[in-house]
Design a protein around this nucleic acid. Structure first.
Ligand SMILES: [Mn+2]
Ligand SMILES: [Mn+2]
Ligand SMILES: [Zn+2]
Ligand SMILES: [Zn+2]
Lengths: 147, 147
DNA sequence: GCCAACATTAGAATGATTCTAAACTTAGAA
DNA sequence: TTCTAAGTTTAGAATCATTCTAATGTTGGC
């Protein structure tokens, strides 16, 4: 049964430039200007952005930057585990998730926005045949969110 | 709570050529040779095939056929509700589902196969904040299936 | 048989993402 | 410092599933 109390929701990590540079070094990535800039957005400000979103922000805030760099950087961040890559049926674009806690998602069909749902807020019970060995599951809720 | 008894699983509809032709007419689609052939596979034999799978079967069993026809036909079948189109995160390709009952899916990480899970076999309870109005959900289980 | 509507087709176009190969930049070592 | 190798960025080409285009073929009712 789900908890009665509302679970504390993921709070966006507030990181200084130095924190970001250190995180990158810790993961074996050089803290280049482009990477640090992209991280500021993708780790601290953005909410499930697409590569296109990241590129738009970067062009606006860091000056001209190649789309290849956006993809390279997002790919590296995913590889070292600072970011997750998700794909949903309603779009062909990947979205990047800075919430590293295990969680599910809610798709707002009106706005197209994705909201995080903490695992504690959902409970799944299953009754499958013996042959099925479940190792994990993803739940995508769909609906609308009140203003 | 999930039922104790195992739900009867979706049985693949066995349709004669005539049945298929009638279904197509009923939906306002001309029962062309290509369409009927594709339906034989995609409605009666296949299990979550990709467009590529359908094309391979069709080339093999119907003779030369354009990929565009495969996509056109699958699209029409989806439009009239004889088929569903699904996309999963683990692949960029759409898969087509002839199970029209509401159901969830199990992804076998070893074989890459998708299995249907009747809705009665899963029960989801949720405890979300007031602003969320849930209109539906998709559950994707992942794991392996015993031989 | 004739025609308009509908289908099929080859190949071009699209769009997200990845690759290529050249030009930069960086971190150390000397 | 200077040098160099490794790592990074970049423009543009390539990839791949899917959609579009526009020409050709087929059908069903008259
Ligand atoms: Mn990736
Ligand atoms: Mn489609
Ligand atoms: Zn998330
Ligand atoms: Zn299915």
């Amino acid at each position: 049964m789900p908890h009665k109390r509302r679970a504390k929701t993921h709070i966006k990590m507030q990181m200084s430039r130095q924190d970001i540079e250190q995180s990158l070094r810790d993961k074996g990535l050089q803290p280049t200007l482009q990477r640090v800039g992209i991280c500021q957005f993708v780790l601290c400000m953005a909410d499930h952005p697409t590569a296109e979103d990241v590129h738009a922000w970067a062009e606006q805030n860091l000056g001209k930057i190649s789309l290849a760099t956006i993809y390279n950087t997002l790919g590296s961040l995913v590889d070292v585990g600072l970011l997750r890559e998700l794909k949903f049926s309603h779009s062909e674009k990947s979205i990047y998730d800075n919430n590293l806690d295990e969680h599910h998602h809610f798709f707002d069909v009106k706005t197209g926005l994705i909201h995080d749902i903490p695992v504690q807020n959902l409970e799944l019970s299953m009754n499958l045949g013996k042959p099925f060995k479940v190792e994990g599951y993803e739940i995508l809720l769909k609906g609308t969110v009140k203003p």
